[in-house]
Simulated assay, not measured.
Amino acid sequence: MDTAQKVDWAALNAHAAGRPARRLVSKAIAAAGGQRHPGVVLDLGAGAGADSLQFARHGWTVHAYDTDDTLAARLVENERMSGSVRFHHGDIAEVEEFPAAQIVYSTYTLSLLGPEALAVTWQRLVDALPRGGVMAVDVFGVNDTWADRPDIATLPLEQVDEMFRDFQVIDRSIRDEDGRFLEDRKHWHVITTLARKLR
């Protein structure tokens, strides 16, 4: 069974439901021109929805994708936002065409697709962005505990840079440290990139 399928995502997302939105949300909004002209965001692996809901509070229309439907129960919050969230329940690797968007956003998810599915999905996400669109995503690096698992895409920095060859990298951070995942010790090697599409 694949690594991602072994995780109780519903329990994990329920535990994370109260966490604040990540700082990457505000960075992505600023890179996309701020709040003057909010557009469409693709949030891949939306989990409990803190980041999706934060985008919506700033007026963005969010297409939130996840295999767990924890977020669906929170969408009543849409009524208190200037934007909105549309939840898509399913595997993002099976989405043949994503809606056009100004921001593609994903944290701790894309590498779980595995090497082959990531390559295919990545091109579909790039195609969804116009020139000037923003990619705010991370992938696991080769120092990650899960690097020896064939169903996880762990990439050297040079390969990540190649993925962003048609982008201007605005910000890059690398988490390379010991930590935990659920009850297990884990070394995290996570490469987070904020970039703007050049063409």
Rank of each mutant, 00 (worst) to 15 (best):
Gly83Tyr: 00
Thr109Pro: 07
Tyr105Glu: 11
Ala16Cys: 09
Arg185Asn: 10
Ile191Met: 14
Asp184Arg: 04
Ala16Met: 13
His88Val: 08
Glu162Asp: 07
Arg86Val: 15
Arg22Phe: 08
Ala128Lys: 04
Thr154Trp: 00
Thr121Ile: 03
Ser111Ile: 02
Val76Asn: 13
Glu77Met: 12
Ile174Gln: 13
Gly132Leu: 15
Val126Asp: 04
Leu42Glu: 02
Tyr65Ser: 10
Arg149Asp: 10
Glu94Pro: 02
Trp122Tyr: 03
Arg165His: 09
Lys186Gln: 06
Glu177Ser: 04
Gly90Ala: 03
Gly18Ala: 13
Asp166Glu: 06
Leu113Lys: 04
Arg172Ile: 01
Ala11Leu: 11
Arg165Tyr: 01
Thr192Phe: 04
Ala11Tyr: 09
Gln35Arg: 05
Thr70Cys: 14
Asp178Leu: 03
Gly45Phe: 06
Pro150Gln: 05
Arg196Phe: 11
Met135Ala: 15
Ala46Trp: 06
Glu97Gly: 09
Ile174Gly: 12
Val137Arg: 07
Leu42Gly: 02
Ala117Ile: 02
Thr109Asn: 07
Ala136Asn: 05
Leu112His: 11
Glu97Tyr: 12
Leu155Met: 13
Thr70Pro: 10
Arg172Ser: 01
Asp171Leu: 07
Asp178Ala: 06
Ala147Asp: 03
Tyr108Thr: 09
Gly45Gln: 02
Pro38Val: 10
Lys186Leu: 09
Ala16Ser: 12
Ala21Thr: 05
Leu129Glu: 07
Asp178Trp: 02
Asp171Cys: 04
Trp146Cys: 14
Thr109Met: 00
Ile191Ala: 00
Leu129Asp: 00
Gln54Ala: 04
Gly179Tyr: 12
Arg124Val: 10
Pro20Gly: 00
Leu118Ser: 07
Arg149Met: 13
Ala21Cys: 10
Asp178Arg: 03
Leu53Asn: 08
Gln159His: 11
Gly59Tyr: 00
Ala147His: 15
Glu116Leu: 07
Thr3Tyr: 00
Gln123Ala: 10
His187Arg: 09
Ile92Ser: 07
Asp8Gly: 02
Arg74Thr: 01
Lys6Pro: 12
Thr193Glu: 01
His37Thr: 15
Glu116Asn: 12
Ala50Thr: 03
Asp66Ala: 12
Leu118Pro: 05
Ala72Ser: 15
Leu24Ala: 15
Gln159Phe: 08
Gly45Val: 01
Leu12Met: 15
Val120Thr: 14
Val25Tyr: 01
Leu113Val: 05
Leu194Gly: 05
Phe55Ala: 06
Asp184Leu: 08
Thr70Asn: 14
Val41Met: 10
